[in-house]
Design a protein around this nucleic acid. Structure first.
Length: 514
RNA sequence: GGCCCGUUCGUCUAGGGGUUAGGACGCAGGGUUUUCAUCUCUGAAACACGGGUUCGAUUCCCGUACGGGCUACCA
């Protein structure tokens, strides 16, 4: 393939949800795979839905993913501006050209009139009133008017839209790269508004004009656009652009984890998981959402997971970082059916990525989380901590949640096991254990292990008699990394301090039980 | 309702006229480990249904069911 130019064209109406990220990713992968160009275009033609900060959010989300647009607002490029609101005049010119060519017309029907018509049709039992070839002659538009009449009407200040005049009795075939040929009968198609009353284009017009002008080679977008693609093809044809029309690939949707329908904003809050790349702070708590980043995901893990929702490499390999995805990607391998969002799988990917991230890289990701809790350990300590904990974490946040005791004294401990093991008849041996630890001169992992084992041999004790007490005494929990590694990391003084403190807690706790 | 798209284990999927229908997540059990986790082994688990076409259909065709999308002066 040559001269691949693709675009990701989100509307800045709020946080970019995860389905949008996947669309951006597929576009990006195709571009990079073929040395092409990835363009970011902001589709802000609906002034009523514009949300401040949304464009910045989109850019930041892409950046977090490691996706950098080659062209776009703030990224340069020869085909700008890349915000549709800044291209208003361009669209109007082509809308008028379509009118001149007889493929579009002025429509003066007000929204109120249209709604009224819909209502009255509904009353008659017709639930799908369409502004199409069957009714356009009777509507309030320029079709029966002479040029001077139209001119007069417009000059008198009547607001108008421009509608596409869809031809009758034709078949439009879309050659979709994912779905094959899909055909539509033009008689089923409505006369879509292409230029709104405020002079702004609708998606349909803006989209094809920009894709043409920006020399887009492939349109990769969500399945929800498939039905209107017939209108798009008609417009390419009417403008004589059909020869250079982009190829289409309509992506299957991402579905709810359970139940019906496509994944929505609400699903995240409902199921306690992110459905956005980054957190979004809206006007209200209901409009505020957490993100994959804030949840403790690594970008590559989130991307790997996302890429596999509707695409697969055709091999049994599953781990693909962004570069590997670029190498492996092809449109042919995109699936046709909707994919459910499986958060367990997402977490598994993250765990794998954490395990395979080097300790030094992990240190930089974990340090802010620990700092947030008020601790600033040395780089060496942090690195050892990451090394010991990374096989036990799923999310980045687990480093703290499951390993906080590396940095501060535990306040609650495994009471069940203390009740079971902190027995009066054994109490003496626990003090002997403490003494034995104190007597270990070289506090390395190997020497600690040797020292403890010598103690056990002398007292005829087993691991099970000694280690659980040591572990809970040190960390409060029975879960965690190698106890000897942790002791070596903490150092002798700290180990003794912790044990003495814990012994006191355990004595007090068991005394309280009696 | 109309138009369009889809349907392989619970989930993500591979495969494709003749296969023990493969992998991954999750789940269950075993091994390794002082614990947890990692790792590893094993197991349960799927071609929506009905008709064709064919020597043979999970695979091709047609229906049905189910799911999804669209049906705005939103994208």
């Amino acid at each position: 393939m040559e001269n691949i130019r693709v675009r990701f064209a989100p509307s800045p109406t709020g946080a970019l949800h995860i389905g949008g990220v996947r669309t951006a990713l597929y576009n990006y992968l195709l571009a990079k795979k073929h040395n092409g160009t990835f363009i970011l275009r902001i589709e802000d033609t609906d002034q009523t839905r514009f949300v401040p900060g949304a464009e910045e959010y989109i850019v930041e989300a892409l950046a977090w993913c490691g996706i950098t647009p080659d062209e776009g607002p703030g990224f340069g490029g020869d085909y700008g501006p890349y915000r549709q609101s800044e291209r208003k005049d361009i669209y109007k010119k082509y809308a008028l050209e379509l009118v001149e060519r007889g493929h579009a017309y002025y429509a003066f029907d007000t929204p109120e009139e249209l709604n009224g018509r819909r209502e009255s049709e509904k009353a008659k039992g017709n639930h799908n009133f369409k502004y199409d070839h069957s009714v356009r002659e009777e509507m309030n538009n320029s079709l029966g008017l002479s040029a001077t009449e139209i001119q007069a009407k417009i000059e008198s200040g009547a607001t108008y839209t421009i509608r596409l005049k869809v031809p009758t009795n034709e078949e439009v075939i879309i050659s979709d790269l994912v779905r094959g040929d899909v055909s539509f009968q033009t008689n089923e198609l409505d006369d879509k508004i292409i230029l709104k009353g405020d002079g702004m284009p609708t998606y349909h017009l803006a989209n094809i004009v920009d894709d043409h002008l920006m020399k887009i080679s492939h349109v990769i977008r969500g399945e929800e656009w498939l039905p209107s693609t017939a209108h798009h093809i008609l417009m390419y044809r009417f403008l004589d652009w059909e020869a250079t029309m982009p190829a289409f690939a309509h992506l299957p949707l991402i579905l709810k984890p359970t139940g019906k329908g496509k994944l929505s904003k609400r699903d995240g809050q409902k199921l306690g998981m992110p459905v956005f790349p980054l957190a979004w702070k809206g006007e209200t708590p209901e409009d505020s959402f957490t993100g994959f980043r804030e949840f403790g995901f690594l970008p590559d893990a989130a991307l790997n997971f996302l890429a596999f929702l509707g695409w697969n490499p055709g091999t049994e390999q599953e781990m693909f970082d962004l570069n590997a995805l670029i190498q492996a990607f092809s449109i042919e391998q995109i699936g046709k059916s909707g994919a459910r969002f499986d958060f367990d799988k997402a977490k598994w990917f993250n765990q794998q990525y954490i395990i395979h991230t080097s300790d030094t890289e992990l240190v930089e990701m974990v340090r802010p989380l620990i700092a947030q809790k008020g601790h600033e350990p040395s780089a060496n300590f942090l690195q050892a901590f990451c090394s010991l904990m990374k096989e036990r974490t799923i999310l980045l946040s687990d480093f703290w949640d499951k390993g906080y005791y590396f940095f501060e004294d535990f306040t609650s401990f495994d009471e069940k096991n203390i009740r079971k093991k902190w027995k009066a008849d054994k109490r003496g041996s626990f003090d002997e254990l403490l003494a034995a630890v104190e007597n270990i001169s070289s506090f390395t992992e190997a020497d600690i292990k040797a020292g403890i084992e010598a103690f056990m041999a002398e007292k005829e004790l087993k691991y099970g008699d000694v280690l659980p007490i040591l572990r809970i005494g040190l960390t409060g929990t029975l879960k965690g990394p190698s106890i000897f590694d942790m002791m070596a990391l903490f150092g002798k003084e700290e180990v003794l301090r912790r044990l003495r403190r814990s012994y006191g807690m355990f004595d007090q706790y068991t005394a309280g039980l009696a």
